[in-house]
Design a protein around this nucleic acid. Structure first.
Lengths: 341, 341
DNA sequence: GAAGAAATTCGAAGCGCTTCGACCACCAGG
DNA sequence: CCTGGTGGTCGAAGCGCTTCGAATTTCTTC
């Protein structure tokens, strides 16, 4: 491979000059610049990343710690990952992918060995053990998610509490008096993954405020899981007229289950989904949904990282307001059986 | 951060000695080794990755080019990515994630700037433009997929032709005389992604060999896509008794559609799915399926990379034999309407 | 036409690590 | 007692790049 010295020689300048045309940190005359650029192109020169990192004290690489388990909403994760990589590239950065099961060690490793300039961490638990670790690292970090005590670390997430509230409010406005929540898998709650509990809190706030009757259940991401979840809800809340589904994998099974039990959506049961838009649109009927803006959040996290890298200190935590899109899965509540008016 | 010089000083040895205890490339007396290791632990020393890459001429990082679009089988991709990262870690390597829409440029960039020691490329098209690029890189590469002309580059994949054949053969053995193929989305074919065509070829071979009547259609990964695909198959092959589904996203919708049209699985229609095992198990009925062994393939790709890195030159392309798991979605063909015997 | 300012460019000193040849001490064999 | 190994350690030379201070050239301005 060609080195900067080769380029310098070919262009008849010193290596520092080449370096400066590359970095733009000092003025270079148009003539020299042109000559250098020509040599670079001719030799197919690419700066050696390691040498750069050593001398320049930054790598242009971001670490992304993603939950690569399968119990979780795979498409959502994928959206995050995709958008982080894409956004990072737009800032001329690359992404080193870590799995969450390396835990804190992975973060310490890549940060300590100066492999990355900053870290983005997903799937944050309420009391996440990685937070103290992150805090003592020399690299900036951004969380996608919201722990109990971020303690100065930037966070970016959907406002899941508001999302839960919004979903219920929408149903209440349609006259529903009963609502069931089909939640994420039990494992998600057990881990203390914060979005699940935040959503639930918002859900329950709205239920109280609007005076609805409700029941909420976690739900395994399989057909059988969805089935037993629906059964439980039916049992505890017979004739339930609306459902909030905060579990992507349960969505498609759910619709099948409702149809099989003779209930039409939205005439007999209204359903609000919490999911990315493309999932909401790929189902038999367009789902009224609160969007999980994976792309937006990933991009936002990267922007935040970049501003930290620039030395700026911005607002610490940024929760995106939920956005409910009305589609075809919600209708007014069926008039209650009872005294006719 | 502590440097190797700090460690050396603390342990009262030279930096080269520290380096040798770290790399094990020269014998070190137990006493010195112990002292050095103590200093390392005490100082929390971690070698600087950039400096290492510069002096040692390797980075312990692999590039993984993954198709981060959403038209594709997201869970399968995720399996690959997960297993590649995990396997790489077991060899003390990290993974730099590239998106396929950077195309050849991304590969050239990370390879040319010596960010990675080797590359793993997914979602290979029959005549993939990245192959010539890969060939001229100084780093070894492994493809997950199979192009027409690998030209010396290692490939690892499921034997999709055999998978197609196996699926049909299984149905034929159950006495089915008609079979419909619900294929991947049109975009996959249009890109010339090789697994789709290889599968189709195997499918058609078996159809010919067993003398079945067949029709195959690509299928958009939405409910509507599945619906129109089924309709087309019904139209061209009325009373079709078996279906092969090489499209994960279509699976769940399909079952709903069949039920809605009054057909039971497997009594009226047998279905063989091509998908990862957990998908096959998460549906209303356990699907008889040909497994897409994402975890195995990812691990295999990494192993191959490692052996190339060691300078070994092994078998070039390795196609995993398909493995059909019988579950509950296949039954003998309903006896044909016709002259009673 | 000379002095000072401004615009460019150069040289050299690292950045932290690996590796090669050298060196030292010590032991076996002759 | 000297020679030849051998296990263990050291010193120094890079690896390819950035960056700082200094040097050089060019342009102004009196």
């Amino acid at each position: 491979m060609a080195t900067i010295a080769d380029v310098a020689q070919a262009a008849g300048v010193s290596t520092s000059t080449v370096s400066y045309v590359l970095s733009g940190r000092r003025p270079i005359s148009p003539a020299t610049r042109a000559r250098v650029e020509a040599s670079i192109a001719e030799l197919g020169y690419r700066p050696h990343a390691g040498a750069r990192a050593l001398a320049g004290r930054h790598t242009n690489v971001l670490a992304l710690a993603a939950p690569l388990r399968s119990d979780i909403n795979v498409p959502v994760i994928m959206q995050f990952v995709t958008s982080v990589v894409t956004a990072a590239r737009s800032y001329d950065h690359d992404v080193l992918l870590l799995t969450n099961d390396e835990g804190s060690d992975g973060l310490e490793r890549v940060a300590g060995s100066a492999m990355v300039d900053a870290l983005i961490v997903m799937d944050i638990e309420s009391d996440d053990a990685r937070i103290p670790v992150l805090r003592r690292l020399r690299q900036p970090a951004v969380l996608i998610g919201l722990p109990n005590r971020p303690g100065g670390i930037s966070c970016v997430d959907l406002d899941f509490a508001a999302a839960g509230y919004t979903a219920v409010a929408h149903l209440a406005e349609h006259g529903h008096r009963t609502v069931g929540l089909i939640g994420p898998p039990p494992a998600v709650y057990q881990r203390g993954t914060s979005y699940a509990t935040r959503f639930l809190a918002g859900f329950e706030d709205a239920v109280d405020e609007f005076g609805l009757a409700s029941v909420s259940r976690p739900c395994e991401p399989t057909f059988d899981g969805a089935l037993s979840c629906v059964n439980l809800i039916d049992e505890q809340l017979p004739g339930v007229s609306s459902l909030v589904v905060h579990n992507e994998a349960a969505l498609s099974p759910l619709l099948g289950i409702l149809r099989a039990s003779g209930r039409r959506v939205p005439e007999d049961v209204s359903v609000v989904a919490i999911c990315p838009q493309d999932v909401a649109l790929g189902l038999p009927i367009g789902m009224t949904s609160v969007d999980i803006p994976g792309h937006q959040l990933g991009a936002l996290a990267v922007e935040r990282v970049m501003s930290l890298l620039r030395g700026e200190r911005g607002a610490e935590t940024r929760l995106l307001a939920p956005c409910l899109a009305e589609r075809d899965s919600c209708a007014d509540a069926p008039s209650e059986p009872g005294p006719a008016r």
